[in-house]
């Protein structure tokens, strides 16, 4: 471990720092920004509706349709978020997983950051200091997406053809390679840890595979959204059974 850390920094009581009142206030601020934005947008849409050839009633129906369609996916995100609460505390989960990012990118960022501190997410060396560094890295990474949006949207809106005419093959292959590369590396990295880690990866991967097959072969399309939450629960359950039945790796 790094020697600069104070005794407090090496405490593993993550929630003591992760649930501080100031963090709650900042998280509520992010929610407020979203609510204000939606209210302003809805007023602007109603005002300009006639010009866009859309009636007040159609706007309301669109709002309702969007809200209803979001119930399932939102609850699926809730399930994943609750599973991550013990790792990051409520305010960080609300802002990072619930809003800006997704469970996949944010937990990946946190795991990478913890790795640079010589620690493992949720492991015995996952101290307050590791949590804070991971939280900082997640937030900076999330800021990357937001900054890119703030910078690129006005550029794209001006119809900058240079950006839009980027080679389509490049736009199809490079992002896919970056994504699969990042997650393959993280997933395969877990296989180098304890037998219970390997079991968790394999069980959760198999569960997701099953969900995806059922979602495409049957009418259970909802499994696409719920797949991640279900896989996490099944993976954790398998890990719990293995961990408490002697596969405990503590050397």
């Amino acid at each position: 471990m790094e020697t600069a850390l104070t005794p407090e920094g090496q405490s593993t009581d993550i929630l003591a720092v992760a649930n501080l009142p100031v963090l709650w206030i900042l998280a509520i601020g992010v929610f407020a920004a979203i609510i204000v934005q939606s209210l302003v947008y809805m007023r602007a849409a109603r005002k300009a509706g006639p010009a866009a050839d859309i009636t007040e009633e159609e706007l309301t129906r669109s709002f309702r349709a969007g809200a209803i369609a979001a119930i399932g996916p939102s609850l699926a995100v809730v399930l994943v978020s609750v599973a991550l609460l013990t790792l990051f505390g409520t305010p960080a989960v609300l802002v990072r997983i619930g809003l800006v990012g997704s469970a996949a990118t944010e937990s990946a960022s946190a795991s990478l950051a913890a790795g640079t501190m010589g620690a493992e997410l949720g492991g015995p060396d996952y101290t307050q200091a590791v949590f804070v560094v991971a939280f900082m890295a997640m937030s900076l990474s999330g800021a990357g997406w937001m900054l890119a949006t703030l910078i690129l949207t006005p550029v794209l809106r001006r119809g900058d053809t240079k950006l839009r005419s980027v080679n389509p093959a490049l736009m199809a292959i490079v992002p896919a390679a970056a994504l699969i590369g990042a997650f393959a590396s993280l997933g395969i990295g877990e296989l180098g840890k304890t037998p219970v880690h390997i079991l968790s990866v394999l069980v959760s991967a198999a569960t997701m595979g099953l969900c995806m097959i059922l979602a495409s072969k049957t009418s259970a399309g909802w499994l696409r959204e719920w797949g991640l939450g279900i896989s996490i629960i099944v993976g954790l359950f398998a890990a719990y059974l293995a961990h408490t039945n002697g596969m405990t790796p503590t050397a």
């Binding site: 599973a83 880690h197 968790s200 990866v201 069980v203 991640l228």
Partner: peptide
């Protein structure tokens, strides 16, 4: 404690399969 220790492998396995299948 157990959930905290194995949550990341339980996420990453599923995410990887989901990515590979949808892409």
């Amino acid at each position: 404690d157990v959930a905290r220790l194995y949550i990341f492998p339980s996420i990453i396995g599923a995410v990887l399969v989901q990515l590979i299948v949808t892409m």
